[in-house]
Design a protein around this nucleic acid. Sequence first.
DNA 1: CCCTTTTCACCTAGGTGGTAAGAT
DNA 2: ATCTTACCACCTAGGTGAAAAGGG
Lengths: 233, 233
Amino acid sequence: GWAGEGPGASGKNRHVCHAAARLEMSSLWEEFSRLGTEMIVTKAGRRMFPTFQVKLSGLDPLADYVLLMDFIPLDDKRYRWGWGNGGRGPDLGVLNSSLPCRYAFHSSSWLAAGRAEPAAPGRVHFHPDSPAKGAQWMRQIVSFDKLKLTNNLLDDNGHIILNSMHRYQPRFHIIFVDPRRDSERFAHQNFKSFSFPETQFMAVTAYQNHRITQLKIASNPFAKGFRDGDPKP
Amino acid sequence: GWAGEGPGASGKNRHVCHAAARLEMSSLWEEFSRLGTEMIVTKAGRRMFPTFQVKLSGLDPLADYVLLMDFIPLDDKRYRWGWGNGGRGPDLGVLNSSLPCRYAFHSSSWLAAGRAEPAAPGRVHFHPDSPAKGAQWMRQIVSFDKLKLTNNLLDDNGHIILNSMHRYQPRFHIIFVDPRRDSERFAHQNFKSFSFPETQFMAVTAYQNHRITQLKIASNPFAKGFRDGDPKP
DNA sequence: CCCTTTTCACCTAGGTGGTAAGAT
DNA sequence: ATCTTACCACCTAGGTGAAAAGGG
């Protein structure tokens, strides 16, 4: 799908006001999202799958841009996976509108289980090619495949720190590198942000929803070793 | 060893005039050089081994620099490997002073065999992190491990094109990115070049000197599969 | 009980020289 | 005869979820 743009395109610098981002592999993201996307977090850091990738347009080909991502908590809740009401199905009352509710019978679901942990250090991930000209960013798909998620609050590898069993919304930011002397004064005009709802996910240390596991195995080339039966083309 | 600097440090921009480069793994380079270094060239492109790596100093930490390499023919000759004078040993007359002469008996050597082929397209390899600040370049060893050599004159992968059976001298260049409007007029002052004689090599499509093959196998981790007997720590 | 960590087999991706066949 | 190419087994390097062990 095309960009869910950030608030207030008005008042933006001309170098970013026409910038647009299309999420790649959006049908795969949506397939995960319908089941309730989970992303593994480990001490050493784990890649996201699907990888966050965008196709950019509307940049000034000759201007410099920095691209980065961050992750914001979707709510102030902590979750757990299980039968919340004696095996009679999911506890609908605790599910907010944006959290998919499947498996009404014979299965578990995500349940709110208290208030969120204190937010982890709010790190950002700069795309390693930053800074680069608009022309280079628009030439091909921009992939954040070097980004890793960790649950280690003391991580010193520069990975994104998240709390397990909490929900997050990835955000993508385009920052125009303003060559003007006092560019700090215009910083609020020089960036544009994008949030794609289909990329929301639950951070976990081990997969909870078996359907998520199966979809990861079926679609991630590195998990091919766990595929059985007929290969998926 | 420390840098063999290019000609004329005088008249250089202050951002490069104190720049220095130390070749890494110089003892390994010298070990190869004593035997007569050979580098494989293939149609698809082949890495160099040893990898060309330098430790930089004397840059302006806050200035932007581009780093690149090129390869210049060491002479106008074409070489062949073999017994040039009826098996009585190498034909000393054809060996120039910088080409090692070993194996006086029971072995082959490099012999000049006519004039060089027309020079291949003179390509350069930009270090992929270019441009970057002096501070970043000096922070750690700069490695040209993405550089590949090819003998395909029509190569369109951006690899360095060389003629097999010809000798080359790798060169390393530091270019200061001059922010001045008419920076082209100062281009000749804004770079500094380095040549390390121990990195000279013969381009080949298959190794000729068996001692070179054995040293590659012993020192290149990717060739570990060909090591036999006692492992080398 | 629920969640996290560690280890592992099994992949992807790509860098080695050997070998035999091909080209000139 | 000499040089080049294509394919191969064997590596490095690192991304997977499974399974078992560890911790509160």
